[in-house]
């Protein structure tokens, strides 16, 4: 399918990596702190979208529970700093660990089903988390949520925090790219394309999907943990369905199965939300309409579309020299 980096010559990918790094490094010096905050948010949500892409684009299982996994990490980070008095790095580890454990539980329950059933089951599992966060108010603060004060000292400077978020985001991207291009990742793609074929070749399909789910949950948790520090606040809306929908939409708009598309999707959706909010409060109508339009006209997403066009271009070059 759409694994871009394989078709370009090496210098193209080197040049684009250097270009991206240069842009990321200059942003703190050219953007005002408000806009730098938006860039930080984009980098964080791209991790969430990529973690969804690992499952939706490379394992053939579209999840609707990653908002819940993401938000669980956010809850755990703020709770463990507030109540357990953990230092921030330890709290971040607790957040990621909690998200990973949660995704392992989800994975055990969901690996046996695929397609629409997988979507429904993960949706329902995510809603359990939402229900618990909403009702268990002694621990989660109910609808009021939890407020934290995590960005102390150097972290209070948005430039420092941006640098950390950018580094984490890049680490997540490189790690997930290595994961999907590893032999394990190639097996996952085989499962995506034909589960029965891979099973008859002797691959343990269930185990592969389970591990992919846990890896994906780990990165969703990483995004949620960083987001806790960024936002200093968490409420049930962090684990609610629209969060999962938005994450999935970012991955789809960018292009499922491309990883890098998640950055495009996250940037577009977050900027669209800010743009629309300036004119109207009806963001949800716009979000829903974008979703419908993407499904009707460009289900392969923006990066997917570009890849498709360049491939057609290079094919026609090959056939008519």
């Amino acid at each position: 399918m759409t694994d871009g980096e394989r078709r370009h010559p090496a210098w193209v990918s080197w040049a684009s990596s250097v270009g991206v790094l240069a842009v990321l490094a200059t942003l703190p010096f050219v953007l005002k702190s408000y806009h730098l905050g938006i860039a930080t948010q984009i980098l964080i949500f791209a991790i969430l979208a990529m973690s969804i892409d690992v499952l939706a684009g490379f394992s053939g299982r579209t999840p609707l529970c990653h908002g819940a996994i993401f938000g669980t990490a956010t809850y755990f980070v703020i709770y463990s700093v507030n109540i357990w008095d953990l230092p921030l790095p330890a709290a971040l580890l607790v957040g990621v660990a909690a998200a990973t454990v949660l995704s392992a539980v989800f994975a055990i329950l969901a690996v046996r089903v695929s397609g629409v059933y997988f979507l429904l089951l993960t949706l329902a599992l995510g809603l359990v988390v939402w229900g618990v966060c909403l009702r268990w108010s002694q621990v989660t603060g109910g609808e009021n949520g939890l407020r934290g004060d995590l960005r102390r000292g150097a972290l209070a400077d948005i430039k420092v925090f941006y640098a950390i978020a950018a580094a984490t985001s890049l680490f997540a991207y490189i790690a997930m790219r290595r994961f999907v291009n590893s032999p394990f990742g190639l097996t996952l793609r085989g499962i995506r394309d034909s589960e029965s074929r891979m099973a008859s070749l002797g691959y343990n399909v269930t185990l592969h999907v389970f591990l992919a789910f846990v890896v994906s949950g780990f990165f969703a948790g990483l995004a949620g943990s960083i987001y806790a520090v960024f936002n200093n606040y968490v409420s049930p809306s962090a684990v609610a369905l629209p969060q999962s929908v938005q994450g999935l939409l970012m991955a789809i708009v960018g292009g499922i199965g491309t990883l890098v598309g998640s950055y495009v999707g996250a940037a577009l959706i977050i900027m669209l939300e800010l743009f629309v909010s300036a004119f109207t409060e009806r963001w949800q109508i716009v979000l829903g309409s974008v979703f419908v339009a993407i499904m009707l006209f460009a289900p392969e997403g923006i990066v997917g579309k570009i890849n498709q066009l360049t491939r057609r271009h290079s094919q026609s070059k090959n056939t008519n020299p």
């Binding site: 979507l119 949800q284 979000l287 419908v292 499904m295 009707l296």
Partner: peptide, 29 residues
Amino acid sequence: LLRWVKGHDLRQVLLTLGVALVLNDLTLV
């Protein structure tokens, strides 16, 4: 809407999800 995505299970589901978001906000308006 749905007739254009016939036979694509996931696209159908996600499309109706988008419709749900729009309808929900419309009733709020």
